[in-house]
């Protein structure tokens, strides 16, 4: 008989200045309980931070008090994270591919943003965005071997 080693956890917060911090704190604590290495937890925390910041800033346009949910599932050395919200869709209907920041410019023209999707795609195994009815679902997978 195959041992069922599936683990899962889910959290919810309301959009606002500290929503991402709150959800990240729950997630990082849970991943610690699941014995993920600190270096893996760091990577996952940055990726989830970027995705959650996008929800607060873009899906909800900095409006407070709207639900953000984060579900974590770990099975067979794959961690699946699903972030759902009830905000505006991502323009174009798909997750931006995230190009590398352009840094060979005069200091005054250096980018102060736009690194988020680049970091997400670089640090995660896979990213999948779906518009579901009145909400968004972003599924991010990490290999945790």
């Amino acid at each position: 008989m195959i041992e069922d080693c599936r683990k899962s956890a889910a959290f919810r917060s309301d959009s606002g200045q500290f929503a991402a911090r709150e959800l990240l704190s729950h997630a990082v604590t849970t991943l610690g309980h699941w014995n993920l290495a600190a270096s893996k937890r760091e990577i996952i925390e940055i990726v989830l931070a970027e995705a959650l910041n996008n929800v607060v800033e873009h899906a909800y346009r900095e409006e407070d008090g709207h639900p953000i949910r984060l579900a974590l599932t770990m099975q067979n050395d794959i961690l699946k994270c699903i972030i759902t919200d009830e905000g505006n869709p991502i323009p174009g209907g798909k997750a931006p591919c995230g190009t590398e920041p352009v840094l060979n410019v005069p200091p005054a023209e250096l980018p102060e943003g736009g690194f988020g999707w680049f970091l997400i795609h670089n640090m995660a195994e896979s990213v999948h965005y779906e518009r579901l009815g009145v909400g968004n679902a972003l599924t991010i997978r990490f290999s945790v071997v």
């Binding site: 925390e45 931070a49 910041n53 250096l110 988020g116």
Partner: peptide
């Protein structure tokens, strides 16, 4: 911990 908003703020 730093995210891209923090990085942008340093820039």
């Amino acid at each position: 911990f730093i995210d891209s908003s923090g990085l942008g703020a340093i820039v």
